[in-house]
Amino acid sequence: MTQGEFLNIVLPFKDKVFRLAKRLLVSTEEAEDATQEVLLKLWNNKEKMKDYKNVEAFSMTMTKNFCFDKLKSKQAQNLKLVHSNYQDSNTALQKQVELNDSVHWVSRIIEGLPEQQKLIIQLRDIEEYELDEIAQMLEMNNTAVRVALSRARKTIREKLTNTHNYGIK
């Protein structure tokens, strides 16, 4: 397999790998390192790649495991908290400031979720994978994914409602 062929396979989902890593590791630099690591592992095992049924799902599983390892390792003790920059949405400036603030809240709420729910929210609501695919990636069964997803969504909504009301009062 040449570099070109490899890149053609990898390009469509490399951003997804990065975002998943960032969701778990929080810091952009660490997520970049993790993505690089995962892609290099794939490249070194490129001969076996034909045997994988779904390279994308396999890579996501690999990313998840890699990030968990990272979080467990001592290195993670000095994990940095980095605030993401949000690009402008098409709303008017006045609303945008307000929205940015509450969007920021969303990211903090998701950060506070248990690891697995974080993953599922990331894979479903941001990357838009089917539930079956998520189950395959996370090595869980379908209903467990659905339950965790529902729980995560409810938590986000409840916390958002709280902060929203608080803002009004």
């Binding site: 990065f18 960032k22 949405s89 969303v106 909504r157």
Partner: peptide, 15 residues
């Protein structure tokens, strides 16, 4: 609104 806005925003982040 912020929840869905956040989801859409995050889709754009690139490696």
């Amino acid at each position: 609104k912020p929840m869905f806005a956040y989801f859409l925003d995050n889709q754009k982040e690139q490696f």
